[in-house]
Design a protein around this nucleic acid. Structure first.
Lengths: 232, 232
DNA sequence: CGGTACTTTGACCAAATTCAATCACTGTGG
DNA sequence: CCACAGTGATTGAATTTGGTCAAAGTACCG
């Protein structure tokens, strides 16, 4: 499958896409015709920065990236963690108000906004991606505005795996503790302490630094939803 | 001007709309044809609740409303405060994941989603409203994740008036202290204390309980953006 | 091995919450 | 017209959660 087809809605319902193309390759979209631009990024690579011109819609096809916004004095909030199959790069004006940074080796497909607007199927997919983003951001606001530290950390684990009956028990964190802290509105130390608490209470086990197993999903969810007694 | 026309993009570029129509009136949109439903709400009235079916796009034409999300144990986060001219009610599925509650006497125009999707001008306006909402939510996440109490309160005043050179100096708060707290992720007491601090340092003056005048906008902005020394 | 970066833990501190009391404004009934 | 109840706002004191600073500990990579 060609990476250039990714922005077509019917080809990426769930997002998992193997293989990739040359850096900077351009592909003709067979059905709709718009030209797609493919780029690769190393970990830490900047997909776009705050203030960059925003003329494209992006799809992340491999890897992961953080979307973050900064205060003038350097404080930063990660507002989204983007995985494969996700559309991103929405902004009001023609400039990005957020920075997107690769967490791992990452492949991004980009399509000119105007071209995207001419294809109704892409338009519809973009609209769905935007409502999903609004939903995620509202959940983040709820987490940042209401939840305690342990609830935030538990939420992170639950959100990362999904919370279906057959969600995987194994988690591989795509981010460092520092980035987790930046997303959860906490400090690295507080994140650490609360991961330790979850381990000590037997809800999760640590298989390695970044790999965990969920032992008691129900209890974890109870904490994440804020129904449990609070503790640091 | 008929309220039923409001969902047409060219008639509400900036949003201020005088006059209104009978409760429950239905109007035929002359240009596009979709049927618009107009409703009125008293202060505290529920425009929609969490879990309600979401089949319409709404425009608030008069008054104001809060959009909030709840945790199972009752904790609540206001994720948006909607004023005249604003579109709202976006959601991923066919159910609202937020509640919308009127802050004052409020008039809402609603249009069926499917009908809206058929009109490209409405589609475009909805798309712009969604990116604007994403932008606001990212700013809220930055506020909730990074800012101190005084910075949050200062941000609230700045955001409410806009921050142009000729923004009004007078503010009439559309919300109680409790709702301000719910939006800013603080308690009522902390909001009070910090309003008092701003008054005492001469950045604002209180004309009445809900009416303030901005005396030193530059200093207020400096605090709001997080460039100033911190204090409770 | 050795060094570097990330993680974890501990002790202490500070900002914000909690709990409690008082104040101010509004509307009601005498 | 005034007393009073009720609601929301404000202030104060004590407490607590999470942050800050500092010191190990651990994994990773040359």
């Amino acid at each position: 499958m060609e990476a250039g087809f990714l922005l077509l809605p019917e080809l990426t319902p769930s997002g998992a896409v193997p293989g990739a193309s040359r850096p900077g390759a351009r592909w003709r979209n067979a059905a709709a015709g718009p030209t797609v631009h493919v780029r690769r990024f190393a970990p830490g690579g900047v997909l776009f920065g705050e203030g960059d011109t925003a003329s494209e819609v992006h799809e992340l096809t491999q890897g992961a990236a953080t979307i973050s916004r900064r205060l003038p004095d350097g404080r930063r909030q990660i507002v989204d963690i983007v995985g494969p199959g996700r559309l991103f790069g929405f902004t009001t004006g023609d400039r990005h108000d957020c920075a997107a940074v690769a967490l791992a080796a990452t492949v991004v497909c980009s399509l000119d906004r105007r071209a995207a607007q001419r294809d109704p199927r892409i338009c519809e997919r973009v609209a769905r991606a935007m409502t999903a983003e609004i939903d995620r951001l509202r959940n983040l606001a709820l987490l940042l505005g209401c939840k305690t530290a342990i609830e935030r950390v538990a939420s992170f684990f639950i959100d990362l795996t999904g919370d279906d009956a057959r969600s995987p028990r194994e988690i591989l964190l795509p981010v460092s503790r520092a980035e987790m802290a930046l997303y959860l509105g906490l400090t690295v130390e507080t994140v650490c302490r609360n991961i330790t608490l979850l381990k000590r209470s037997g809800l999760i086990t640590a298989d390695s630094r970044d790999a965990f197993t969920i032992v008691d999903r129900a209890a974890l969810r109870t904490i994440a939803q804020g129904k449990a007694p609070r503790a640091q």
